[in-house]
Simulated scan of single mutants.
Amino acid sequence: MSGARMAELLFDEADAISTRERLVISALQAFSSTGYDGVSVREVERACGVNRGLIAYHFGSKEELWRACIDLLMAKFHEEMTKYRGVLRVVSPEERAKVLLKIYVSFASKHPEFFRLLIVHGADESSRMEWLVKGLKETLNFFGEVTGSSSDSVTAEEEAMACYLFLGAASTIFAVPSQCQMLFGVDPRDPEFIERYTDVVASFGFYDPRPLGGKPS
């Protein structure tokens, strides 16, 4: 995916983004494709058509550039979820959870690099993983706050299983669109398909992992 296309997806006014934002968008695509060690800051600068040294100027280091990428994605995701906070409080906890799950599926369809980053960096035991986990925890806490659910009511194993089963179900198909199209002749980027797929994923009951599937025993 080109840097211009990424800009269209990440920002409402792609023609108004700054050099710093362009660098983050380009780096985000690179990090989600080849991992942290596989990315050269000069290649990111070259892809943006900017002068050498601008990453150091804007971010100080490749590590800070990586963190800026994660911050951008988590901010976009959190923004999508929090703008429904007021409306969600007037429906049942189960319906709130379904709405939030649908929001995530929609987000994953527009930003497949989010799930790719989780996979590419998922085995890292580093400060970068701590930074990523911090953002994920904030999102999980928001989900629990809005839906009225609490991690005290389920075991850590149940919570982990529900979380990763949902992430895989909601995200994988959008992270490998060419594979899906070649295998099934289905384009997961098609808006009508995304709408149908969102309803299917939200119907699985990931919001209640006691036991996994929905109802307490």
Rank of each mutant, 00 (worst) to 15 (best):
G3S: 08
A4N: 15
A7Y: 03
E8Q: 14
E8H: 11
F11H: 07
D15S: 03
A16Y: 08
A16S: 13
I17W: 00
I17S: 02
E21S: 07
E21L: 01
E21W: 00
I25C: 06
I25D: 01
S26H: 00
S26R: 06
L28I: 07
Q29I: 12
Q29C: 07
A30E: 11
S33N: 15
D37Y: 04
V39N: 06
V41T: 10
V44W: 05
C48G: 04
G49M: 01
V50W: 01
N51R: 13
N51P: 07
R52L: 11
G53M: 01
G53H: 04
L54K: 07
Y57N: 12
Y57F: 07
F59P: 03
S61F: 02
K62D: 08
K62T: 06
E64I: 05
L65C: 06
R67F: 04
R67D: 04
R67E: 14
C69T: 11
C69P: 04
D71W: 09
M74S: 13
K76W: 06
F77H: 15
H78E: 05
E79V: 05
E79S: 10
E80M: 05
E80N: 05
Y84H: 15
V87D: 14
V87R: 15
R89H: 13
V90E: 13
V91M: 13
V91H: 04
P93Y: 00
R96E: 05
A97K: 01
K98L: 11
L101P: 03
L101G: 05
V105W: 08
S106Y: 12
P112W: 00
P112A: 08
F114G: 15
F115I: 08
R116F: 08
R116C: 08
L118W: 05
V120T: 08
V120E: 09
D124T: 06
E125M: 05
E125N: 13
M129K: 11
E130L: 09
L132S: 14
K134R: 14
K134P: 02
L136V: 07
L136Y: 09
L136D: 09
L136F: 12
E138Y: 05
E138L: 12
T139L: 10
T139C: 11
L140A: 10
L140R: 13
L140F: 06
G148L: 03
S149L: 09
S151F: 09
D152T: 01
S153F: 09
V154Q: 12
T155D: 03
A156D: 11
E158A: 13
E159K: 14
A160M: 06
Y164K: 08
F166I: 14
A170D: 09
A170C: 12
S171F: 01
I173S: 12
F174M: 14
F174C: 13
V176I: 15
P177H: 03
S178G: 08
Q179G: 10
Q181S: 15
M182E: 15
F184K: 06
G185C: 06
V186Y: 00
D187Y: 02
R189V: 02
D190V: 04
P191C: 01
E192D: 14
E192L: 02
Y197P: 11
D199M: 02
V200Y: 14
V201C: 09
S203D: 01
S203M: 00
F204S: 08
F206N: 03
D208N: 15
R210Y: 09
G213I: 07
G214L: 08
G214H: 10
